[in-house]
Design a protein around this nucleic acid. Sequence first.
DNA 1: CGGACAATTGAGACGCGTCAAAACTCGTGG
DNA 2: CCACGAGTTTTGACGCGTCTCAATTGTCCG
Lengths: 218, 218
Amino acid sequence: MTRCASRSDTGAPSLSELFETSGIKRRFNPGATIAAQGERQAWVYMVARGCVRSCIYSPEGHRRVVRFRGPGSVLGLGLAAEWTTSEEAVDMAVLEAIPVAAFEAMLAASPAAQRDLHDRMREEIEAHAALLVLTSNSSAVDRVREFLKDFARSRKSGGLISLPMSRRDIGDHLALSMESVCRAISTLKRDGEIDLKGASFFRFPEQDAGGLAVHCAA
Amino acid sequence: MTRCASRSDTGAPSLSELFETSGIKRRFNPGATIAAQGERQAWVYMVARGCVRSCIYSPEGHRRVVRFRGPGSVLGLGLAAEWTTSEEAVDMAVLEAIPVAAFEAMLAASPAAQRDLHDRMREEIEAHAALLVLTSNSSAVDRVREFLKDFARSRKSGGLISLPMSRRDIGDHLALSMESVCRAISTLKRDGEIDLKGASFFRFPEQDAGGLAVHCAA
DNA sequence: CGGACAATTGAGACGCGTCAAAACTCGTGG
DNA sequence: CCACGAGTTTTGACGCGTCTCAATTGTCCG
């Protein structure tokens, strides 16, 4: 899909190495603000562990979760003077931090890092575009189903998947109310599309039958 | 807002120069497809005249207009192997085209161009994010009002502003039906927030009273 | 003038938001 | 170990805004 599939040097993307070698570890409690929208950007971060939400608050106080970020995702790629998003820890999160000036210096010295940065920005654009498509013409159930699929894919865990964020977080991501997310999840569970373990663990039943069994709900 | 406000060399952004000196002019009729989603990307374009819409078609056939582009805007910034968006001429559009390989070569030779590219990608991310916010928690009238404001600002013409795209285009941009866009425009006109000249020219009445006059509609 | 297409307006249905209440979870302390 | 309380999740009822379908009007060009 991307042109840079073959990277000559090492197997790991350049920016990952940068953060692993030069990053300072910082830990954030659930709900903690890593960076606030409008604040001057002094650091660039990479998620090492946990989950981070990138939010935008509109003047009227509404929130949109533009993206959930897991390990390997970089915060502040745009290198703008101020943070355009608020970055908040969803659960206990550990990040690698590099001062912006140092990051830019390392970037200037490494064409591979520049290419990695470019690829990641393109990926960010495509993710935003995909969210725009998802939230334009699909029902609440469709949005939640697609979100869960994507999330499961990004965590590539075959079994039980942890869902660290709240229903409201998911709603603010998918442009739905908290209640609509609840109802959609309940519908998916009732229809046998997902299994729930408590409220924050789910699983896709690997249906060998091809999903034709409808559990004769109606 | 952006860090790169002071660019040392010339007044024009680097990529603009690139396209003006090395670009091949190509003309497209209204509705023509400049590049199709999924097609291999052979060229990078810059809009010279006219208006272009960047669309994404979902598997179900729904369309989202991710962005409208005017003169100066670059198509294919991401340099992915394939076009992730369909680029379509809204009206008669003239574009400057550069082959991808040549573009990348020029890019490698010019740090200023790289920085310009980075800035433009950040701007793209921010524009997408703004659209995500706009289409999450606002009514049809609010979306259309904001869209018209933005569009007027981007065209920075004080007087009558041409609206080259159809109501359906606007709807697919704002995640509204064509009819809802119509109704919203009618409402704005009735309430005196905009003036209409035909269906494709509008104007914001520069109210010196500060917008307190409500035209006693109710 | 006529025809095709876009824009507008209307009527009705449906889905989601809102408000409200109940059930559940989890940590704390008796 | 159980009781308690705060916060989250779930379910219910209802109203409203937007979508859909349909008809009319308007616009542009041959």
